[in-house]
Nucleic acid binder design. Structure first.
Length: 1103
RNA sequence: AGUCCUGUAGCUCAACGGUAGAGCGCUUCUCUUACAAAGAAGAUGUUGUAGGUUCGAUUCCUAUCAGGAUUACCA
C-alpha cells in the first residue's frame, strides 16, 4: 500500500485523462492481437472510412458501437482482433484532388498519371491521418499495428488475385453496355453513387408520322433530346388500337429515319397513349428491348454530356441545350403535341452533382448471378450470415435475388488499375472496344501470356481505368488478413470474422459484395453476424447530409463534453431494430463552436445554471453521468482508508447487512441483464440499465444507506460496508468500461492502486459474472417497501412544509406482520434517509396501546438516536438515570438503539447488560400497571451506553442479529405485542426470507380510536404505502388545507385503482379464464387499494 | 406504385396479451462535509384514428391517416 491515500481530484479532467489513456493503450499495445493466444477468437474488421477528409457523426456512432462490442468481447476473455483501416475511395478522392488542381488552373492531364497519383498520395497521407486520429480519439480499441489501407501492396495483391481468378472463371467480362455515366466526372459510377431526387419536370408529347400515311403515332418523353437516337416505337402486342400498325414504320422527325413499330410486352397500354419511343442507347429499359428486337443502338451523346455527330444539326450542344433546341425544332415542324408538367425522379451523380446519363460504353463487368447464388444458398440453408436485427435479412435477400451485373471499371486514375493488357497494335495502336487483351497480375506475366496467345512478342498497354472501389471493399474482410499472400497467419486464425457492424444504407453495396466475394474466394461467409444500425439524425430529425449542411463534427462534442459522454449518448439512444437515433443539438451554439475551433479557441468552461447554454442536452446528460460516477468513486475512495478491494477482501456473506445484501443482489441482477443484453446487441438497453443502477441504486440509495456505518466506529459493520462498496464499485467500473473506457480506466487504477502497464489495464480485466446465489428478488421487493416508506415520509415532510434539515418523528402502523418485519429490519435506513429521529413501528390492531405512542412535544429535544455522531451520544450519555419512565417506549428505544448501533452491541458485555436491563424493566413492569406518559426517557439508556462504550471492542464475533431477535422476543413477552418469532427476526436481518406482500390484510379493521390516538395529542400528517400507514406528528400549526388536499388526492387515487380492479374482478369471464396468478394479483391489488382508501378515509374524517 | 419501419408524457425512448414507465425538460424547496454538472418532492398520457380477435389490446389482425426508409420507375 502506498503511503499516501489514493484520491481522485475534485474535478474530472476529461480531456487530459482521455488523451492519457489513448496514448497509453496504443504505446503499450494493449489491443495488439496475438494469433498464438489460445481460446475462442472474436474478430472485427472495421468498415474503412473514406480518406476524404474527416469523420462525421455516423462514423462516431459506428465506432462507438464497434468498440463497445469489441471491448466487451475482450473482457469475456476472447482472443480479440479489431482491425482498423481506411478506404481509398477512388472517385471521391480524385474529385477532391482535381478540385485542388482546378484552383491552381491545372487539370490532371496537365500533370500526367504519375504526377497526379503522387499528389493524391500526398493528400491521402494527410487525410488518412486525420481519420485515424479521429478514430483514436473515439477510443477505438483497435490493433493499430494491423492498420490497413485498400491500396496497400498486400491488399492490392488480393485485388489482382481476385480479378484474375474471376476473369479466368469467366465471371469478369468486358462488354458494351449502358452504365450510370457521370458527365461531370466523366466516369461510370456505381448505383451507390447515385442519388435519386424527385424533381418537377415535363412530359413532352410528340407525334411521329406513320410512313406512307397521313396518320401519326403519339409518344411522350421526359428527355426530348434522346429522340434523336430513337430506333423504334413500341406498342403492347395485345393493344387493339395499334395491332395493325405493328410491322409498319414511322419517320423519325428531325432525323428523317425510318424506324419500325414493334410489339413488346413491356409496354403498358394503359399509360399515356400506349406508344413508347425506344432509344436503346440511352435508356435501360429500351436497351433491353433493343436487344430483344435486334434494334440498332445509336448513341447521340459524347462522354462530356454534349451531343455527338449522330445528333445531326444538334452536334456539340450540351444535353440540356439540345433538349430545348429539339423541342423548338419539333414544334416548328408541327410535331409537338403538348407539354405537361410531370413529377419524376432523376438519378443524380453524388460526386458531380449533375443528372446521371445512361450511356452505352465498353466497360468491365462482374457476372454476379453465380456469386449471388452461393451467398443466397448460405442464407437460405444456414441463415448465414445472421442479421441483427433479423428484418434486414429480407432486404439483403431481395438484393441477392434481383441483382444485375456489376460494372467495375471507372474512368479514373486513383485506385486499382485494371490488370488487363491490350495488344494495341491489333487495333491501330489504340485501345478500342475490340482490341484483344490478356489479363494477368503484372506486365511480365501479361507479356508471357500475350506471347503465347499471339505467337510473338506484342506491344502491350494496360487498361487505363481503375476498379470500382467496392471491388476492393468486397475483399476487405480477408484481404486485410493476408488472404492470397505469403503471410496468412491472421487469416488462418481470425477468419471468418465474427461480426460486421455497419449501417443499413450499405447492405447492398458493401455487405452483399463481401458475402459474394467472400463466399466465392474463401468458401466461407466472411462474418458470422451482421449487426445493422441506423443513422444519426440531426436536431430536427432530418438525415444528416452534405447537401443539407446539417452534419455534426463529433470532435466538437468531444471537446465540449468528452469522448465517453459522446459515446455513451450515442449508444444509450440505440433502440431496438436498427432504428435511427437522434442527436440533440443547439445549432447556433454549434456553429459558434465550429468557428471557434477553426480559430483555435477552446470551448468555454461550462457555466452552471444558465439556460440555453447547452450545446447538446443529451450529451450533457451523459457528461453529468460521468461526473456522478467520478464523485461517487471519490466518496468510496475516501472511505476505503487507502485499502484496495483486494486488500479489503470479499465480505463474509453471513455478515452482510440488509442493504449490503440488497445492493449485491441488484449488482448481480444488473450484471446478468447486462451480459444478456450485450450478447444480443441490445446496447442501448444495457447502457440504460447501468445508468439506473449506478445513479439510482448505488449513488442515491446504497451510498446514503451506508454513510452512517462508514462514519461510525471501526468494526465489522464498517468493514463489511467498505468491502461491499469496493466490490460493487470495482465491478461496476468493469461493467461500464466498454461504454465509457476512459473514465473507468482512470478510476479503476486509482481504486486498485495498480500502475498501468501493457498487461495491467481495465480493458484486459474480466467482465463481471453474475452470481445467482446473491440475487434475491424477495429482498429486492422488501426494499421496495422501505424505499416507498422513505419516499412517503419525505413526501409528507414536503407537504407539511418541514425544513429538509429538520429531524422528525414518525409512526408506521401496519397490521401486516411481514410489512412490519420489513420495516423493522430497515428501520435505520428509514431514519437516515427520511431524517427521522424517532421511528415507531406498531401493529394498530394487535393490542390496545397502553398509551398513545407519540407524546406531547418534548420540552427538551430528544437525543438523536440515528445520527450516530459522538456528540449526540455524549449528550445522550449525559442524561441522568431515571427521570421518568415509559417502560414500553423504553424497551422500544432500547431495541432501536441496538438496531442502530449493532456494532456497539456486539460485545458480549453489551448484550448481557441489555438483557439485564430488560430483566430490570420486567421487574419494574410487573409492579406497575399504568405507565406514565413520558417522552424523554432515554437517560437510562445513557447509563447502559456508557458501559457499552467502555467495552466496545472487546469481542468481535457474536451473532448480534440473533441476539437482537431474542431481545425483541423478550420485549414481546414483556408487552404482549405480536413481536415476530425469534427465528423470523433473526432471518429477517441476516437473510430475509419474508415474502413481500401480496398483502393479505387482516379482516379486522383498525378502530378509529387507534387512528385517533396520535391525532388526539398532536396534529398528524398521514400517508399510505402498501398497507402501511405513515404518520408524522407535528408541533405547532398545521396546514389543514394542505393535509386535506394531500389525503384527498391519495384517496382518489386509491379509489380509482380499487374501482378499476373491482370492475375487472366482477367480470365472471375474467375470473374464470384468466390465469390464476393474474386473478390473485388483481385480488391482492384490490385488497390493498381498498385498505388504503379505508385508512385515508378514516384519517380524513378526523380532520 | 411495391416493400419495410415508425406513430406512447413537451422532447428522446421503454413496457413475454395482464391495465403504461425512464431520462431530459418543466414546477417547488434545499449550496446537508462525494457530487448545485447535485439532492428532495411534484405535475404531465382517450398509447395516431376506426373496427376486429380476446375475459383483457400499447402489444395480435384489418382498414385508414401521418412521418420515414428503400426499390422500381410509365416512356
Amino acid at each position: 500500500m502506498t503511503a499516501k491515500l489514493p484520491t481522485l481530484s475534485s474535478q474530472y479532467e476529461a480531456k487530459t485523462t482521455e488523451t492519457k489513456w489513448q496514448t497509453f493503450w496504443e504505446a503499450n499495445e494493449v489491443f495488439k492481437a496475438d494469433p498464438k493466444q489460445a481460446g475462442d477468437y472474436f474478430s472485427i474488421v472495421t468498415p474503412p472510412p473514406n480518406v476524404t477528409g474527416s469523420l462525421h457523426m455516423g462514423h462516431a456512432f459506428n465506432t462507438a458501437l464497434i468498440d463497445t462490442i469489441v471491448r466487451y468481447q475482450r473482457m469475456l476473455g476472447k482472443n480479440v482482433l479489431c482491425l482498423p483501416g481506411t478506404d481509398h475511395a477512388s472517385i471521391a478522392v480524385q474529385t477532391i484532388v482535381e478540385k485542388q488542381l482546378k484552383a491552381e488552373g491545372k487539370t490532371r492531364a496537365d500533370l500526367g498519371r504519375e504526377k497526379f497519383l503522387e499528389r493524391t498520395w500526398e493528400w491521402k497521407k494527410e487525410s488518412g491521418g486525420t481519420i485515424t486520429g479521429q478514430l483514436r480519439r473515439l477510443g477505438l480499441s483497435a490493433d493499430w499495428s494491423r492498420e490497413r489501407f485498400t491500396l496497400d501492396p498486400k491488399l492490392s495483391e488480393s485485388v489482382l488475385e481476385a480479378f484474375v481468378q474471376l476473369h479466368s472463371e469467366g465471371l469478369i467480362y468486358r462488354g458494351n453496355y449502358l452504365v450510370n455515366w457521370c458527365p461531370a466526372s466523366q466516369s461510370a459510377v456505381s448505383d451507390l453513387e447515385v442519388d435519386n431526387r424527385e424533381i418537377d419536370g415535363n412530359l413532352w408529347h410528340f407525334r411521329y408520322p406513320i410512313t406512307g400515311t397521313k396518320d401519326f403515332i403519339e409518344v411522350a418523353t421526359t428527355r426530348p433530346e434522346t429522340m434523336l437516337g430513337d430506333t423504334a416505337v413500341a406498342v403492347n402486342p395485345t393493344d387493339d388500337r395499334y395491332k395493325a400498325l405493328v410491322g409498319k414504320t414511322v419517320t423519325l422527325p428531325l432525323q428523317n429515319r425510318e424506324i419500325p413499330i414493334i410489339a413488346d410486352e413491356y409496354v403498358d397500354a394503359s399509360f399515356g397513349t400506349g406508344c413508347v419511343k425506344i432509344t436503346p442507347a440511352h435508356d435501360t429499359n429500351d436497351f433491353e428491348m433493343g436487344k430483344r428486337h435486334d434494334l440498332p443502338f445509336i448513341n447521340v451523346m459524347n462522354k462530356d454530356g454534349s451531343m455527338n455527330e449522330n445528333a445531326g444539326e444538334f452536334e456539340g450542344l450540351d444535353r440540356f441545350d439540345a433538349r430545348k433546341a429539339v423541342v423548338v425544332a419539333l414544334e416548328a415542324a408541327g410535331n409537338l403535341v403538348k407539354i405537361e408538367p410531370y413529377k419524376t425522379t432523376l438519378p443524380y451523380s453524388e460526386r458531380g452533382g449533375v443528372p446521371i446519363e445512361p450511356l452505352l460504353s465498353t466497360q468491365w463487368f462482374v457476372n454476379t448471378a453465380p456469386l449471388a447464388q452461393k451467398a443466397l444458398a448460405d442464407l437460405d440453408e444456414r441463415n448465414s450470415p445472421e442479421y441483427v436485427p433479423d428484418r434486414w435479412k429480407k432486404v439483403y435477400r431481395d438484393w441477392l435475388v434481383n441483382l444485375k451485373d456489376w460494372c467495375i471499371s471507372r474512368q479514373l486514375w486513383w485506385g486499382h488499375q485494371i490488370p488487363a493488357w491490350y495488344a494495341v497494335e491489333e487495333t491501330g495502336g489504340v485501345i478500342t472496344d475490340s482490341t484483344p487483351f490478356v489479363v494477368a497480375k503484372n506486365s511480365k506475366e501479361a507479356a508471357k501470356l500475350a506471347e503465347a496467345k499471339f505467337g510473338k512478342v506484342v506491344k502491350l498497354e494496360q487498361d487505363p481505368d481503375v476498379l470500382d472501389t467496392w471491388f476492393s471493399s468486397g475483399l476487405w474482410p480477408f484481404s486485410t488478413l493476408g488472404w492470397g499472400t505469403e503471410e496468412q497467419s491472421d487469416y488462418d486464425r481470425y477468419y471468418p470474422t465474427s461480426t460486421l457492424v455497419t449501417g443499413f444504407d450499405i447492405i447492398f453495396f458493401w455487405v452483399a459484395r463481401m458475402t459474394m466475394m467472400g463466399r466465392h474466394f474463401t468458401e466461407a461467409m466472411p462474418f458470422d453476424q451482421v449487426y445493422i444500425h441506423g443513422l444519426v439524425r440531426d436536431e430536427n430529425g432530418a438525415k444528416m447530409s452534405k447537401s443539407k449542411n446539417n452534419g455534426v463534427d463529433p470532435l466538437v462534442l468531444i471537446d465540449e463534453y468528452s469522448t465517453d459522454a459522446l459515446r455513451y449518448t450515442l449508444i444509450r439512444e440505440v433502440a431496438g431494430a436498427g432504428q435511427d437515433i437522434s442527436l440533440q443539438l443547439n445549432r447556433k451554439l454549434y456553429n459558434q463552436r465550429v468557428k471557434d475551433r477553426a480559430a483555435g479557441k477552446e470551448p468555454p468552461a461550462p457555466t452552471p445554471g444558465s439556460k440555453d447554454n447547452s450545446l447538446s442536452e443529451s450529451v450533457e446528460a451523459s457528461r453529468n453521468f460521468t461526473n456522478k460516477l467520478w464523485n461517487a468513486s471519490r466518496f468510496v475512495l475516501m472511505n476505503l482508508e487507502g485499502q484496495t478491494p483486494e486488500q479489503l477482501g470479499t465480505p463474509d456473506t453471513a455478515k452482510l447487512e440488509l442493504c449490503d445484501r440488497w445492493i449485491l443482489s441488484r449488482y448481480h441482477q444488473v450484471t446478468k441483464a447486462l451480459r444478456e443484453n450485450l450478447d444480443q446487441y441490445s446496447l442501448g438497453e444495457a447502457a440504460k440499465q447501468l445508468y439506473e443502477f449506478i445513479w439510482g441504486d448505488f449513488c442515491d440509495l446504497y451510498i446514503e444507506l451506508v454513510k452512517y456505518r462508514l462514519q461510525g466506529e471501526e468494526g465489522e459493520s464498517k468493514l463489511v460496508a467498505q468491502q461491499t462498496l469496493a466490490l460493487v464499485l470495482e465491478g461496476t467500473l468493469k461493467l461500464l468500461h466498454p461504454f465509457m473506457p476512459h473514465i473507468t480506466e482512470e478510476i479503476w487504477h486509482t481504486v486498485v492502486q495498480k500502475e498501468a502497464t501493457g498487461q495491467v489495464s481495465l480493458a484486459l480485466e474480466s467482465y463481471p459474472e453474475s452470481n445467482p446465489a446473491l440475487i434475491d428478488a424477495d429482498l429486492e421487493s422488501q426494499f421496495e417497501l422501505l424505499i416507498g416508506t422513505i419516499r412517503t415520509i419525505r413526501n409528507l415532510r414536503t407537504e407539511a412544509g418541514i425544513k429538509p434539515g429538520e429531524k422528525i418523528e414518525a409512526l408506521l402502523q401496519s397490521e401486516n406482520d411481514r410489512e412490519r418485519t420489513t420495516l423493522e429490519s430497515g428501520q435505520i435506513y428509514i431514519q437516515n434517509l427520511a431524517r427521522v429521529k424517532k421511528l415507531s413501528i406498531t401493529n394498530p390492531s394487535a393490542s390496545k396501546p397502553l398509551d398513545p405512542p407519540a407524546t406531547k412535544p418534548a420540552t427538551t429535544p430528544s437525543p438523536d438516536l440515528t445520527a450516530g455522531t459522538l456528540k449526540d451520544r455524549k449528550a445522550w450519555a449525559d442524561r441522568t438515570w431515571l427521570e421518568k419512565l415509559d417502560l414500553r417506549d423504553l424497551a422500544d428505544d432500547l431495541l432501536d438503539y441496538l438496531a442502530n448501533y449493532q456494532k456497539l452491541a456486539i460485545t458480549l458485555w453489551g448484550i448481557t447488560l441489555t438483557i439485564l436491563a430488560f430483566n430490570v424493566l420486567k421487574a419494574a413492569f410487573n409492579g406497575v400497571h399504568r405507565v406514565a406518559i413520558v417522552s424523554d426517557l432515554l437517560e437510562d439508556i445513557g447509563f447502559f451506553y456508557t458501559i457499552f462504550f467502555v467495552k466496545d471492542n472487546l469481542l468481535k464475533s457474536t451473532d448480534r442479529q440473533r441476539t437482537f431477535g431474542n431481545l425483541k422476543k423478550l420485549k414481546g413477552d414483556l408487552f404482549g405485542e405480536a413481536a415476530p418469532a425469534v427465528e423470523a427476526v433473526a432471518e429477517t436481518v441476516a437473510a430475509p426470507i419474508v415474502t413481500p406482500s401480496p398483502t393479505t390484510p387482516s379482516p379486522t379493521h383498525p378502530e378509529p380510536d387507534d387512528l385517533r390516538s396520535v391525532g388526539d395529542h398532536r396534529q398528524t400528517f398521514a400517508g399510505v404505502v402498501g398497507t402501511v400507514q405513515v404518520l408524522i406528528p407535528l408541533d405547532g400549526l398545521v396546514d389543514i388545507t394542505a393535509l386535506k388536499a394531500k389525503l384527498e388526492k391519495d384517496l382518489t387515487r386509491a379509489q380509482n385503482e380499487a374501482q378499476s380492479v373491482r370492475g375487472r374482478l366482477s367480470n365472471q369471464k375474467f375470473v374464470a379464464q384468466a390465469p390464476e396468478e393474474v386473478v390473485q394479483g388483481a385480488k391482492n391489488a384490490l385488497a390493498e387499494a381498498e385498505k388504503q382508501a379505508e385508512l385515508i378515509q378514516a384519517r380524513l374524517s378526523m380532520l
